[in-house]
């Protein structure tokens, strides 16, 4: 296993996967807090149009993808902030338009087949170049700087947006920033786990972490740890079993979630014996 890592492309692949697995949950936690876990998936769909555009025009797909994903994320944020009931339908149209646009534009590109799209849809970490890794690294650091550095403010707008407005926080700016960072995260993850699976790494490590933690900060730290553990296990598992890396990483994350979900109730039972009832368990209302 260690021998494998002596080859540069393996090293780049591992770094790419771990970077994605570390960054995605720090952004995803805010989406989960807002109960909008699936938005990352939608932005991934929209980004595919950007990939198609890049293949058609001969540009690096990562640059066109990031541009289209940011535009899409801002549109999604505008629909969300209006809070219209028709917003749900608007999002559906954008997401399916995005994925169809990607397939359509790739079809128009000369000498490119939809097989090219597969590497973007499901990831292809072994083909990550040094230049790719530099771009991913820069974008990843930007996302981490925002999600960790602005945590008190992003927490406030996601926890209670109206209260944040009354506190005089720049709510609109923060919402747009969060949307743009979601788009950047999708692009970072595109080569490593793919556009269709990126959302899983935004959500599943958070879901596992919140089973164990009592607060937001703890959930964030644990979700980053769980992301790295799933990324490592999935990466080596996929090499051992010769399976798709992105999919294996996501399955590792889901396995970790399942394990935590099974173990947590047992831990609780050990920590709090059944016979002692604390005062906080006393009911507020008693029906007579």
């Amino acid at each position: 296993m260690i021998d494998l890592l002596s080859s540069p492309f393996m090293q780049r692949a591992l770094i790419g996967v771990l970077l994605t697995a570390l960054v995605a949950p720090t952004l995803g936690i805010y989406l989960v807090q807002r109960r909008m876990s699936l938005i990352g998936d939608g932005i991934g769909h929209i980004a595919l149009t950007g990939v198609g555009l890049g293949l058609l025009t001969g540009n690096q797909p990562v640059y066109t993808a990031i541009a289209v994903a940011i535009a899409g994320a801002i549109a999604v944020e505008m629909v969300r902030s209006r809070g219209r009931t028709s917003g749900d339908m608007a999002l559906a149209i954008m997401f399916y338009g995005g994925i169809s646009g990607g397939v359509f534009l790739t079809g128009l590109a000369k000498g490119k087949s939809n097989a090219n799209l597969m590497t973007y849809l499901f990831g292809s970490p072994l083909t990550i170049t040094e230049q790719d890794l530099i771009v991913m690294g820069i974008l990843g650091v930007i996302v981490l700087a925002v999600t960790l550095g602005l945590r008190p403010w992003l927490f406030a707008i996601c926890q209670d947006e109206e209260y944040a407005r009354v506190s005089g926080l720049p709510v609109r700016l923060l919402n747009l920033l969060l949307a743009v960072m979601a788009a950047v995260t999708v692009t970072v993850a595109m080569r490593a786990v793919g556009l269709l699976l990126v959302s899983a790494l935004m959500v599943v490590p958070v879901a596992a972490a919140q089973l164990l933690s009592r607060g937001f900060g703890m959930t964030m730290a644990l979700s980053m740890l769980f992301g790295l553990v799933s990324g490592t296990a999935g990466f080596f598992g996929s090499i051992q079993l010769d399976t798709g890396t992105g999919a294996t990483v996501v399955l590792a994350a889901i396995a970790l979630f399942t394990l935590v979900a099974l173990v947590t109730p047992l831990l609780r039972r050990v920590r709090r014996p059944r016979h002692t009832t604390s005062s906080s368990d006393a009911p507020e209302w008693v029906l007579e």
């Binding site: 807090q33 807002r34 403010w153 506190s167 933690s213 607060g215």
Partner: peptide, 23 residues
């Protein structure tokens, strides 16, 4: 407000919520 905001998808401690009032 009348009640806690809708952003309850992730656990938050009492202290974390109250700290938002200091921003």
């Amino acid at each position: 407000p009348q009640r806690l905001g809708a952003g309850s998808g992730v656990p938050a401690t009492v202290r974390e919520v109250v700290a938002a009032g200091r921003l």
